[in-house]
Design a binder for these strands. Structure first.
Lengths: 193, 193
DNA sequence: AAGTTAACAGACAGGTCTGTCTACACCCAG
DNA sequence: CTGGGTGTAGACAGACCTGTCTGTTAACTT
């Protein structure tokens, strides 16, 4: 990890970088291996050396999305202050940022899961991501003193998924505000005890 | 519309029926025209007579899903009683039914939208569906006396989308209850004035 | 200088995709 | 009996898909 911030040097990084952009924009199934090769200026043999099957590239793509998105989620929560209640609401700022970003196209995990059969490696990875995020939110809800942390976490992640999923249809700028406000109501109601 | 309830007689119905099942299970892009033909026992020329392009078949599929799903939504709301507040919460029973049904695989519209480019006919149709549903919920929220009917409708449809979208990952039986409870909290908070 | 490694360039096989086309069978009205 | 409408059966074109394979070039190591 002595990677500088500039253009990716080695071939593997270039491939993954291109796949990240293209898979998110068109869905993994909508982008051929040849297209990734052409776009990243790499030889076919090189791609298949690092990612023996296309699914391996898709898995690496999901790992990258997981890193980036989960990182933004935690950063948004942290930026909301020390009170876990505020952090539960603050994580929705990550959704607002995502909605404003160019080329926003909804939740990469939901979109990808829709394209792969349940039971496949790729599908399992998307489920795993959602479980990890929900476990993190559950912990936050517990520290916020929620009556039923698991339930609150489920409600908030469902709301988050809804806000994200709606992005594949239409990046409506009203969505993030409405979602954040709803989160506040749910958090206040669940931490009343 | 003199259609009896039994097995679809005419070729067009058989095609659409098969497409409905297969497109929902694997995504429109994941099912070839040849597969639809083989499964519905129809000649290729017949399919292309009724649906000149595959996209026409996808649009017909979305129309059918819209009819069925929107119908279930309204039926669930109606079954919850006369109070519009209860109806806003009751429509989430349609989500519960969907989650319990065999082969449940999330929201057909979100899944399909992820597979088609924004700007395409198919993508536009998915957006239209969501707008129609939200307009209906907005009307319900207005009659429920919500302070800001548009906002409440947006929050509830986002919650609904979240519950639906999560279905593509994992048909968790806890989801519908948590969603319904969250809806109750949001409705009560928005109709306080 | 020789060998090793990484990468590029691109042909190729075998399959699937959409969409068009020809040829044939049936049935019912005139 | 004839002719139009509806359907079946399946070949075909042209594009695209994944994955394998052969050769070549350049850089670094010993």
């Amino acid at each position: 990890m002595v990677q500088s911030g500039g253009a990716p040097r080695c071939a593997r990084d270039r491939i993954l970088d291109t796949a990240f952009r293209m898979f998110y924009a068109h869905g993994p199934r909508g982008v051929g291996v040849d297209t990734v090769i052409a776009e990243s200026g790499v030889a076919k043999a090189t791609l298949y050396k690092y990612f023996p099957r296309k699914d391996d590239l898709v898995l690496a793509y999901l790992d990258k999305v997981d890193q980036v998105w989960f990182g933004q989620l935690r950063a948004a929560a942290r930026a909301a202050g020390d009170d876990p209640r505020d952090q539960l609401v603050g994580m929705f700022d990550a959704l607002a940022s995502a909605c404003r970003s160019e080329g926003y196209h909804g939740c990469a995990f939901i979109n990808t899961a829709a394209e792969f059969e349940p039971g496949s490696d790729v599908h399992a990875r998307t489920v795993e991501h959602k479980n990890v995020v929900r476990a993190w939110v559950t912990d936050l809800a517990r520290r916020a003193g929620a009556d039923d942390p698991e339930r609150l976490a489920r409600q908030l992640t469902l709301l988050l998924d809804g806000g994200l999923a709606a992005g594949v249809l239409d990046a409506d700028p009203v969505t993030p505000d409405a979602t954040r406000a709803a989160a506040r109501v749910l958090v206040d109601a669940a931490c009343s005890g």
